[in-house]
């Protein structure tokens, strides 16, 4: 039955689904475990990590497309069926994947083994804002927790997925885990270049709490002035960002803006603040060639951007 998820989605799936349906009807669903097939992963970040561990040992289906939003991506009926008939579902949890939460829950209730990785790696709470006190789901900004996640995923794959070579899984996990250890060491060395008084992330992202805790940064939230106000801004349009930059005393802010250069120019002209506006990758991997196609590439790109911004003269 593993062939089911290795087929391309779409029309080609139909015979497989029908076949599976017939099998299910014939067996009356009593021996449900026998029909389960493959590993289904919700987010593309966890998908990349899982594929590195699993290699060619099992089919891994990743539900969230590159460049999508983990909160809002939804799935098709076929994907829902795959999920409910997986041998293992790996998801982030902690409220991240709102769009597929119910599907994951349904799979869990149907007896599919599920691993909520975020819940298993010692989550921290948000410290401010409307979500204060709730667990922060964005654990992947801390490679040390991702290293823990690698072992957790490897153990679950070995335990739950039929027919995998557990020694290969273990070897893959050690190999990839080593890359993550190295990534953490790289981060530590790179961030050490940033002077103590500049270890401040002025940002409109809400995902860097784990990175901040691991590498001793302070996160200072700011509202980024919208594009329509930049042509003719008033002091109130710029107030949140200006005061955050002044408080932090840093030469760069990390924010998504549709017009980053124009924002920097306006901040210089109107508020007398010389800053660079630098985007970071936050919640999704990108397509190949767009800067964050893998977790390792994404993390390196963010680290480089932060170091470059905060060591700017």
């Amino acid at each position: 039955m593993r062939a089911l998820s290795s087929r391309p989605r779409g029309r080609a799936l139909l015979p497989a689904v029908l076949a599976l349906l017939l099998t299910a009807v014939a067996s009356g669903c009593a021996a449900e475990g026998e029909q389960r097939s493959g590993i289904v992963v919700t987010t593309n970040i966890l998908g990349d990590i899982t594929r590195n561990i699993v290699g060619d040992q099992a089919e891994v289906t990743v539900l969230m497309k590159p460049g999508a939003d983990p909160h809002s991506f939804g799935i098709s009926a076929q994907e829902a069926a795959l999920l409910e008939n997986a041998e293992l579902v790996i998801h982030n949890g902690l409220g991240l994947e709102e769009g597929v939460h119910r599907n994951v829950e349904a799979a869990d209730q149907a007896g599919v083994p599920t691993l909520a990785v975020g819940e298993a790696v010692d989550p921290i709470d948000y410290t401010e804002g409307e979500t204060q006190g709730q667990a922060d789901p964005h654990f992947w900004t801390d490679p040390v927790r991702v290293r823990q996640a690698v072992d957790l995923i490897a153990a679950q794959v070995s335990e739950q997925v039929d027919g995998v070579d557990t020694e290969r899984i273990q070897a893959n996990a050690e190999e990839y885990g080593g890359q993550i250890d190295e990534l953490h060491e790289e981060n530590t060395r790179a961030f050490a270049e940033i002077p103590e008084e500049r270890r401040r992330l002025v940002t409109n992202h809400h995902v860097f709490g784990y990175l901040a805790q691991r590498y001793d940064f302070e996160v200072i939230g700011a509202v980024i002035p919208s594009g329509t106000t930049l042509a003719s801004p008033s002091a109130s349009d710029l107030e949140s960002l200006s005061s955050a930059v002044e408080q932090a005393g840093v030469p760069a802010v990390f924010a998504d803006s549709s017009q980053p250069d124009r924002l920097a120019r306006v901040m210089a002209e109107e508020a007398g603040l010389d800053i660079e506006v630098i985007p970071l990758f936050s919640e999704s991997l990108t397509a190949e060639g767009e800067g964050a196609a893998t977790y390792v590439e994404m993390t390196r790109a963010n680290t480089d951007a932060i170091v470059r911004g905060l060591t700017r003269e």
Binding site: R11, L13, L14, V17, L18, L20, L21, A24, V25, G28, C29, E32, S76, A77, Q78, A80, A81, E84, N85, A106, Q109, A110, G111
Partner: peptide, 21 residues
Amino acid sequence: IPPSTLVAALLLTAGCASAGQ
């Protein structure tokens, strides 16, 4: 999504409803 696939997928989901949900 071909409607027949959708129906099949739905049937499939429903077919295993006896597993306790």
